[in-house]
């Protein structure tokens, strides 16, 4: 039974009109392997320059899909024999830019910082200053931007810019950060994806992590994840000003 205090509060502050009921969301299918993290069920695509499309996404009260969200969704689709083929096709045949950001520290410092659900990305717009397709963070106190940092030396120890084996994926520090330390998700997705890529394209290595170059000033880019044909790589060098950006707005509460 509902809490009567809540109902009293609701009646006191409600609008007189009954809100228009939303279309029922796509029914959530049983989740494979006992996972507790359901994927999102409704979404809207924003295709075009990220800097132009992000404000549209935000103005609709949506949040940008993260790498984590995408992997949960793809895993669910790949592991569910009853998955809607159309939806499966959409998510596997497309690449997606995400709300997760990658800061390249200035050249003289080196290293990167990964920022989940970045507010700076969320605030970008067509007037944002771009350097080589990335947001310039010059003048922004990057020390106040929280994220996980990897030094130049850390990066030198990693396998970057090439496709990975299944085992290399499961141990890759950057993938681990992108899935927010959810090793179970990383394991489930990589297994499912490697099987899919082998069947479909005869690929044995996938899910490489590709980084771009640092500039003289700190810059920020959005992580994007490739389509299945592109081996589901995680790319950190995309341009926010490219006309072929694809953001997915989730009809859910903000992730921050």
């Amino acid at each position: 039974m509902a809490n009567k205090r809540f109902l009293e509060y609701a009646k006191r502050t409600a609008n007189p009109e009954i809100p228009e009921l939303r279309r029922e969301s796509v029914e959530t299918k049983p989740v494979a392997r006992g996972r507790t993290d359901n994927s999102f069920t409704s979404y809207e695509e924003f295709f075009g320059k990220n800097v132009d499309k992000m404000p549209e996404l935000v103005s609709k009260g949506l949040v940008s899909m993260s790498v984590y969200d995408l992997l949960v969704k793809r895993t669910e689709l790949l592991t569910n024999p009853d998955a809607d083929p159309e939806e499966l096709g959409y998510f596997m045949k497309n690449y997606f830019h995400t709300g997760d950001a990658l800061i390249y520290l200035p050249k003289n410092v080196g290293g990167i910082r990964i920022v989940h659900d970045s507010q700076v990305l969320r605030d970008m717009n067509s007037k944002s200053k771009l350097v080589d397709g990335a947001l310039s963070l010059k003048g922004i106190g990057i020390s106040s931007i929280q994220g996980l940092e990897f030094s130049k030396d850390d990066l030198e120890m990693m396998i970057l810019n090439k496709s990975l084996t299944l085992e290399q994926v499961s141990n890759h520090p950057l993938w681990k950060v992108l899935v927010r330390d959810n090793n179970e998700l990383l394991g489930d997705y990589s297994e499912a994806f490697f099987a899919h890529a082998k069947t479909k394209y005869n690929y044995d290595t996938n899910m490489g992590v590709y980084l771009g170059s640092a500039q003289s000033v700190p810059i920020m880019r959005a992580w994007y994840v490739c389509r299945a044909y592109g081996r589901s790589d995680a790319n950190g060098y995309g341009s926010l000003g490219s006309g072929s950006g694809r953001l997915l707005g989730l009809a859910s509460e903000t992730q921050k």
């Binding site: 609701a10 502050t13 409600a14 009109e17 009954i18």
Partner: peptide
């Protein structure tokens, strides 16, 4: 709030 107040 609105949905709850209107019995939904």
């Amino acid at each position: 709030i609105d949905l709850a107040a209107h019995g939904k």
